[in-house]
Computed example of a mutant assay.
Amino acid sequence: MKLGFDIDDTLINLREHAFHIYNQKLGQNVGLDVFHALPSMEIHSAFGLTKEEGGKLWHSLRDEIYYSDCATFPHAREALNQLVAKGHEVYYITARAKEHTDRTRQWLLDNGFPVAEGHFFCGMSDSEKVHIIEQLELDYYFDDKPTVLATLSHLPIQICVKDRSYNRHLTLPRITSWEELPRLMQG
């Protein structure tokens, strides 16, 4: 089978990592309970920032957020390595900006994710992901972002959502832990 995975907030806990960095940089101590209750992807409102202020802060900290010690979700790396060991093809499809392509691919490799040649796609907009997913003729695709998942509904693919506070309204097959992946794939 061919399986596609978003990276940020699907395989790695990027927003929570950024939340900790925001607390540190802004000298605040906003609790994780606030993070886990956020109804949207953006974290700036938890810190009293406007959308514009939040965008500027994210941009100024992007390298630190992306390439420091961001945790993978438990069992994500192991689940993907098991898929590859069983002969499945794993593809990464991320909307990170194009200038982050090489460093993101290397970060995945350095952190033990299986990245085969030609199986890593980076530098497209969220709306362009659908074209890559369609061209790859994936059997499964995993993402956290509701707007991305909505663009895939017309494809003959099993779409799965990585459980996050901002996507709980979706009625798609949901993965809360990567340990669930084998069960989810069995139907």
Rank of each mutant, 00 (worst) to 15 (best):
T151I: 00
K145L: 14
G27W: 06
Q82D: 14
L138D: 01
M124Q: 04
T10A: 05
W178Q: 09
Y140K: 05
T104D: 13
M41V: 12
N167M: 11
L184V: 11
Q28L: 13
V30P: 08
S125Y: 06
H44Q: 14
V90M: 07
I7N: 01
V90A: 06
L170Q: 09
K145G: 05
A97Y: 03
M41S: 12
N29L: 13
Q186D: 15
Y166H: 02
L155W: 00
M41R: 13
N167V: 12
H131I: 00
S165N: 13
S68A: 14
H44N: 14
K129T: 04
E128F: 00
H119S: 13
P114I: 12
N167E: 12
S125T: 14
S40V: 15
Y140A: 05
P114K: 14
I7Y: 00
A76Q: 10
D139R: 03
R183G: 11
S60F: 07
E64R: 05
G118N: 15
K162I: 07
Y67S: 08
K129C: 04
F5C: 12
T94Y: 07
A85N: 13
K51F: 12
A116G: 02
G48S: 12
T94H: 09
I157G: 00
D144Q: 10
L170K: 06
T171E: 15
R168H: 07
K56T: 08
F19W: 06
T104H: 07
R77A: 09
F5A: 10
L170V: 08
A97R: 13
I65G: 01
Y66Q: 10
Y92S: 07
A85L: 10
H59D: 15
D69G: 05
G31L: 13
G48W: 03
L38F: 07
A95Q: 04
P146F: 10
R15M: 11
F73C: 03
T176L: 05
Y66L: 15
D110Q: 15
I43Q: 09
T94K: 07
N167P: 03
I133T: 01
F121E: 01
P182A: 09
I12H: 01
R15G: 05
Q135G: 01
D144K: 05
S127K: 12
L80C: 03
N167G: 11
L3G: 01
V34Q: 13
R96P: 00
Q135V: 00
H59I: 11
L149E: 04
D6Y: 01
F73Y: 15
L109Q: 14
Q24T: 12
E52F: 03
N167I: 09
S177G: 02
S68V: 05
H20I: 08
E117G: 02
F73R: 06
Q24K: 14
F5E: 11
N29P: 05
I65N: 00
I132R: 04
